[in-house]
Structures are given as C-alpha cells and as structure tokens.
Design a binder for these strands. Structure first.
Lengths: 244, 244
DNA sequence: GGCACTTCTTGTCGATCAGACAAGAAGGTA
DNA sequence: TACCTTCTTGTCTGATCGACAAGAAGTGCC
C-alpha cells in the first residue's frame, strides 16, 4: 500500500458546488442560471456554483457562500440541501472536477436578481431547460432534472412547499406552488381541507386578509412538521393507460 | 482570479467511497462492517470503502470495485445507488477526505462473508449500530442512519424490497423484508393483496412451491416497475400521541 | 345602498381504499 | 386420518379521495 503522498499525487480531485435554485414567478417554476464569462463553455448558461475556496471550507458552507455571491440570496433565509454528486470523469475538460449539487428553494418573487456580482444571473422557466430549447453547460441539464424531481418528490412527503412562500401565506398561494412544481391542477376546495388535515403542516397566523378581488383569505405560517402525515399525494399521471 | 494550478494546490481533496450494504439475516436487518487494520481508528469497525484508485476512475465504478474487493459481492447482481456526500473538514485526521457514500442491497443470506480479501468483514444487526452499542469509526454512524432511512423511504415508493430477495421469492418473504426494514408487523393477508394490487411490482413465476411446514407458496419475480403506484405506505408510527 | 363579481370556506355524496378478521386451500407430519 | 402450518380468498366497516353545490366575505360599479 502506497503512502498518503502518492494518493494525493494520483487521485485527488477538485470539488465544486453547483446550485439548483428554484422559485416561483408568475405561477411558473423557474431556475436561476448564469451566463458563463469564460471557458469552458463561455457564453453558455449554467447553474451558479464554483470551486471550494480552500481545503478547510465545509461543503454546505461553500454552497451557502455561492448562493450569496452568485445569486445574492441569503442562505439563512431559505431552504438549502444537498442533492447529489456528479463526478463523471469526462464532465469537465479542465480535469477531474467533482461537483456536489445542492437544491435551494427561494420564496416567491425575490427581485429578478439583486445588483450583486452576478448581474448576469437570470430566472429561467424550467420548461425551457427541460425541453432542451435552452442548452446548459456541462452535465447541468441532468442536475436540473434531478433537482426538479427531488422537489416534486419532497412536496409529497415534506413541508418543502412552504419554502416557496414568504413567512406567511394563504392556502391558495400554497396550492399554486404545488400546481407549478407538479405541473398539474388541483381542486382548491379539496386542497384546502387536505392541507389542514395534515398535522402541523400549517398553522393559522391571524385572521388577516391579503388577496385581492375576492373574499380575503386566512393567513398561515409553516408549522413545526417537516415530514407530512398523511402525505400530499400527487394525482396519478398514467391515467389508466395500460402501464409501461 | 488565480489559475488552475493554484486551485489544485489550495483546494483539491481526496475522494473515498463508503458502502452501506444492507441485507436480511434471520429476518433482521444487517449491515456489513469491517474491522480496520490500520490507523486512523485501527481496530474499530467501519463501513467498507476506500479511496478512488486514480483520477480517471468513475465514482460509481469505484463503489462497485470496493463492493467486490471488500465484501466479495458482485455489483452486477445487486442494487447500488449513491446515497450522499460527507465532507465535514474534520471528519478524517489524514486531511481533507470527502466520502461519497453509497447504498447497496444484497439478497438474503449471502454467505457470512466470502473468503476474500476482507475476511474481517462481518454482518452486524443494524440495531446494534443505531443504538451505539457498537461504535463506528469516523462519521460512519451518521452514514448508516442515513442509509437505513433511505432504504425505509424507498421501500414505500419503489420496488427496492425485491433487491433483498433472490431472483424468485414468495410474498411472505417479501413481507419479512418490509417488516425487518420498517421494524413493524404487517397483516399477511392485506399485504398479499396490496402487493398484487401494485401494477408491475411482482409477477408470478411458476406455481411452484418453496416454503416448509405449511401450504406451499406461489413464487414471484420482480416486475418491470421501479416506482410503485399506489405506494406501499408504512403504518403510522405516532399512534395518536399528540404530535410533537 | 344594491348588485355583480371574485375568491375563500364549508358541506355533501358516492366510489374507492385500508385495516380487521373469518374461512377455506394445500401441503407436511404423527 | 387427524392435526398443524402457512398460504390465499372473502367480507365487512370505517376512513379517505375526488367531484361538485352552496354559502361567506370581501371589492368595484351604478
């Protein structure tokens, strides 16, 4: 067995963090993309992210830092979790670069992008990414696919949907989150009762108003529960079509 | 912005793969552990795993290689998936070592451990690990916790349970998988109908026999479905206990 | 104010599903 | 054959889900 020095020589890798930052804009799911300013893939769009600053930086901390630097968002206020690792040997022409992708959820309508370092960041409808009408650098398409799928899944079993909303929200706002992420339509009346039937999902926050045009809605905040019981099941998509 | 050379100097890391290999032995969930032969944590138990062999090795391939080298199991025959990344800066005294943990599921009763390189590997009941009566090296306790939780969750929504069984199995064998992983009891009669109600979960494999002592059971093989619809929901654990 | 309009909230109803349990089927063994 | 074990099929009851009606509570317009 060779020593540690040989190990470093032969098999150390560079670590990056990449961010799939999702939010809702005009009731559609958007992801934050940046235009790359230099090679490789200069001019193409990619997920925000970057290299570990130094060997002592924690990975999640690096993700939070990139969230701030490249997106102008404060990690303390939004949901941030590890998504997966992408380490295919050929994914980056600069050498062996392994990326730890993260999923972040931003509350609705953060300004199009703060006037920060990364003014070239823009919210893009995920549809445009998923149908490949807007190609991404590296393997970032796959990362977005996985991130959106993770979000879809966690909407069912966890309180992640509240992360798309502000500190208080109405139930129809919450419903629009589900509809946008799942790309489906839900019955407002059943949704209303279902959400309130989940223990600790949402708790009333004053009998206040907020909507416009119709009857004012009650406000809620996120409850203490992180895993939903019973879960919010998304409607069957296969629709009796002889599976396969 | 500094060049690539500085980046490598300052922030490259060593990558390892670690394996949470689960199986069923005597109807209890077990995880494969190895006794460490050298520092750090010499003599302690840890998950099987090791460093990336070289810079060109794919991560999943490295996991498959360790599966073979350290556990004597063939990655082609069993379920193997990425679990998560553990990269806390202080987790390994040898320097910045980032581990990509994987979850593997072995069919029931692979021999206690083949007479391979790692003869010091042994199947250990996960209870003993989770209640910390058997301490693990590094942050491997956390990795085991996350791996078991992942297995529990995927039993609900995917056909992962069949990976615990051989190529053919009876429904009561499958039931014992659920009972062991979830640590719960299920009604055999309802389970029987429920499993068969899930489209493409299991398909009959000859009206053969297999069990002993009672009426022979029908044999099944895993079906084409990977995501279960409707899902197998695990019984509510909170049991009307004023949530908290 | 009265009226139309919007959206929120509560009710109801039938189909479907989950969990409890009875009973029959199909082998082994004394 | 009598019994034991385990598998498989039925049935029943209460809970849940999705469709939809109807009432509640605001805004804006005449």
């Amino acid at each position: 067995m060779s020593g540690m020095r040989d190990l470093w020589q032969s098999s150390s890798v560079l670590l990056t963090v990449d961010l799939v930052i999702l939010t809702l804009r005009e009731d559609r799911l958007h992801v934050l993309l940046v235009e790359r300013g230099h090679e490789p893939h200069q001019g193409a769009f990619s997920l925000p992210g970057g290299f570990l600053r130094d060997r002592s930086e924690d990975i999640l901390a690096a993700a939070a830092r990139e969230l701030s630097e490249e997106a102008g968002l404060d990690a303390g206020t939004l949901h941030l979790e590890q998504l997966a690792v992408y380490g295919d040997p050929g994914r980056d022409p600069r050498g062996r670069v392994v990326s730890v992708a993260h999923l972040a959820i931003a509350p609705r309508l953060p300004e199009p992008v703060a006037g920060t370092d990364a003014a070239d960041a823009r919210w893009t409808p995920v549809d445009q990414v998923l149908d490949t009408s807007l190609p991404l650098a590296f393997d970032h398409l796959r990362i977005v696919i996985d991130g959106v799928e993770r979000a879809c899944a966690k909407l069912e079993s966890t309180a992640l949907a509240t992360a798309f909303c502000g500190p208080t929200f109405t139930l129809s706002e919450l419903q629009r989150v589900y509809e946008a992420v799942w790309d489906t339509r839900l019955d407002a009346r059943n949704f209303y009762r279902k959400v309130q039937g989940v223990r600790g999902f949402v708790i009333p926050a004053g009998p206040t108003r907020k909507t416009e045009g119709g009857r004012p809605a009650r406000l809620f905040r996120a409850g203490p529960t992180t895993v939903l019981y019973p879960p919010m099941v998304r409607p069957d998509r296969t629709e009796r079509g002889e599976d396969q």
